[in-house]
Amino acid sequence: MTDSFWAYVGIAVAVLLVVGGVVLGLLRGRAQGPEPGPEAPQVPGTPGPADADLAPDGAIGTIEHPGEVVDTEPDTTAPPSAPEAAPGVEAPEAPAGRLRRLRARLARSNSSLGRGLLALLAGGRLDEAAWEEVEDTLLAADLGVQASTELVEALRTRVAVEGSTDEAAVRGMLREELLRLVDPSMDRSLADERVDGRPSCILVVGVNGTGKTTTVGKLARVLVAEDKDVVLGAADTFRAAAADQLETWGGRVGVPTVRSDREGADPASVAFDAVAAAAEMEADVVVVDTAGRLQNKVGLMDELGKVKRVIEKRSPVDEVLLVLDATTGQNGLRQAEVFAEVVGITGIVLTKLDGTAKGGIVVAVQRALGVPVKLVGLGEGPDDLAPFDPEAFVDAIVD
């Protein structure tokens, strides 16, 4: 072989050695990974062969800072977010706020009574004719004969003893004597708490046209504002729209209504079902609406007694609220007496008290029945029903 042949063989071997070295270097570099550099991207939370580590609980995590381990598994121990209010459900105004707002309305509706009394008493001419005029003013305010006579006698005695007709002094005397007649010692609380592991039961009754179903809907708002779980019973099955109306009121504040789909259904059966449903739902209180009825209709009053008796087969009736229209004045007292005989009234709801200056009906109805006024309605708004506050009521008259 020539010298040139061996020269070509040597060159070929050298080329093979160089290529083999390059390939071997590339393979070793791929196995070891690239050297970290400033341009190497890092994805937080992505473990790799170079940075995999065990978290204290054994889970695989990434060490992003010395001594800090971030779990790659989702955190299931975080507290759940607060539940959102159901769409379309309203938050009723708290009773405390209602009292402040309604006091101003009471003052306007009874302003003529307060002004008239103060003008007479502080006029400096308290002769017999003046005292008769004071009594006439009280009678016109529906205070009632007996209560008016008592108030006049008490004021005459105090004025004679204290010898003062100063307006501030007379105002103080009038306030004290009126408050005594309204009687702040009466228990005006509602039976709205669970009793012996069952919901309390409130039966609402009244004559036609007093706004009874509306009052039940507003009462549900009062109870919801006090954080009560409420169920409504639509036992007025004779007025076509009564159940729909009550269901609408309840739906606005997320309160269920138990009703019959059949017009003219037995109201006692619906009332019974409402009480049973409230027990199953573990509600705090069930409020049963009944059909309005005239007190002189014996058959209807007997039916109302039946509704109460049927409810009592399932649960005691803890409260019977009579809804009265304050504008009817003394005419409403006979209604109240008949209802009390049939179902045993425990409290009065006076509606439309803003439409009259005859605030004395509060005293008259309490005396006639021996039960307190517990709620008053002073407007058409959904939150215009409020617990009755004797001191706020009297202050609204004399201030």
Rank of each mutant, 00 (worst) to 15 (best):
V159H: 03
D127G: 15
V145M: 05
L151N: 13
E132L: 15
L117G: 03
G144R: 08
S148A: 15
T157K: 14
A122S: 15
Q146I: 04
V159M: 00
G123V: 02
A140Y: 07
D136T: 14
L120K: 08
S148R: 11
L120I: 07
G114S: 04
T149K: 14
G114H: 03
S148Q: 09
L151R: 13
V152S: 12
V145S: 01
E133I: 00
G123Y: 02
A140L: 15
A160D: 14
L139P: 12
L139E: 09
A122T: 11
E150S: 12
L113K: 08
A141N: 07
L120P: 07
Q146A: 10
R156T: 08
L113T: 10
G114M: 05
L155D: 03
L139M: 14
L120F: 09
A119L: 07
S112A: 14
E150H: 06
V134R: 01
E150G: 06
R158P: 02
L138K: 13
R125E: 06
V159E: 01
A122Y: 12
A122W: 10
R125H: 03
S112D: 11
V159S: 01
L155N: 08
A122E: 05
E153S: 13
T149S: 14
D142I: 02
L155A: 02
A160W: 05
Q146W: 00
L117H: 09
L143K: 05
E132Q: 15
R158C: 02
V145F: 10
